[in-house]
Nucleic acid binder design. Structure first.
Length: 260
DNA sequence: ATGTCTCGGCTCCCGAGA
């Protein structure tokens, strides 16, 4: 089963580029972030006619996550547990049947957190605490799961072309990386780094300052796999060439191939 | 390089967020 994550930066703006990539990459599941659309306005038909089931959790203007799946989506839940007052649409879960086991899919758009320090950064760290608790719960339930999306975290210096310029940024400051490391230390596997070592692998290039042409990128879109799913990992790749196409998102798709 | 893109208000530009 091929599962991709892709921050599309607006479904309306990506109404041609997203289907084009789906037709070519043919993932079984696409976990999307920043749909920037309310659920009623999401153009589900475009994906349904390609054989995808569609589950969205959107809001007006900002954020918003979705799951497209060729296998039926069951037990869809929306919103990250732990704060009923949180109105930002950043989390969606659904179950798909693998060849042998059910697989719980978690799609996330982790808060950016800038400027740091400040209230937006406090919200990011609090959100990551809730994410840690959700991962602990899923591990305790022993249901195979993965968590995929835009983590807005640069895990290590090698994941940025210019790490020094990110030193005090919410995506890279020590507290952010420590919170991400806590997740890993629960026993989760970061899929890309389980397969590929070394610098120069990025999933985001800013629209500004010719970042793409200078390859001034960062790697912030990740898959975290529970132990059972880590055992099924066959491949993990970044479709970086997508960034060079017409009307691109500032992120590119990252995908895993699972023996499931 | 002060370098871009997206969304929405109620639009013929601007602020906010990234």
């Amino acid at each position: 089963m091929k599962i991709a994550t892709f921050n599309i930066n607006g479904i309306k703006a990506r109404i041609e580029a997203l289907p084009a990539w789906l037709d070519e990459a043919t993932p079984d599941v696409a976990i999307l972030q920043e749909i920037k659309s309310v659920d009623e306005a999401f153009p589900a038909e475009i994906f349904e006619e390609r054989g995808y089931n569609v589950a969205t959790h959107g809001q007006k203007s900002f954020n918003g996550v979705a799951i497209l799946s060729k296998r039926p989506l069951e037990d869809v839940t929306r919103g990250l547990p732990g704060d009923d007052s949180d109105e930002q649409a950043r989390w969606i879960e659904a179950t798909v049947m693998g060849d042998t086991h059910p697989l719980r899919l978690c799609g996330l758009y982790l808060p950016n957190g800038n400027p740091a320090p400040g209230p937006k950064y406090d919200y990011k760290l609090a959100w990551m605490e809730r994410l840690l608790k959700r991962a602990e719960t899923l591990l305790a339930e022993e249901t195979p799961f993965l968590m995929a999306g835009d983590y807005n975290i640069i895990p290590q210096a090698e994941d940025a072309a210019k790490p020094d310029s990110w030193r005090d940024d919410a995506l890279f400051r020590l507290e952010s990386r420590t919170a991400f490391r806590k997740l890993i230390n629960l026993g989760l596997t970061e899929a890309f780094r389980a397969r590929t070592q070394g610098p120069g692998h990025y999933s985001f290039w800013d629209y500004q300052a010719g970042a793409w042409n200078r390859n001034n990128g960062i790697r912030i879109d990740h898959f975290l796999l529970c132990p059972q799913v880590a055992d099924m990992l066959q491949d993990c790749q970044i479709d970086m060439e997508v960034r060079g196409r017409d009307k691109p998102s500032d992120h590119v798709p990252v995908w895993v191939e699972l023996a499931a």
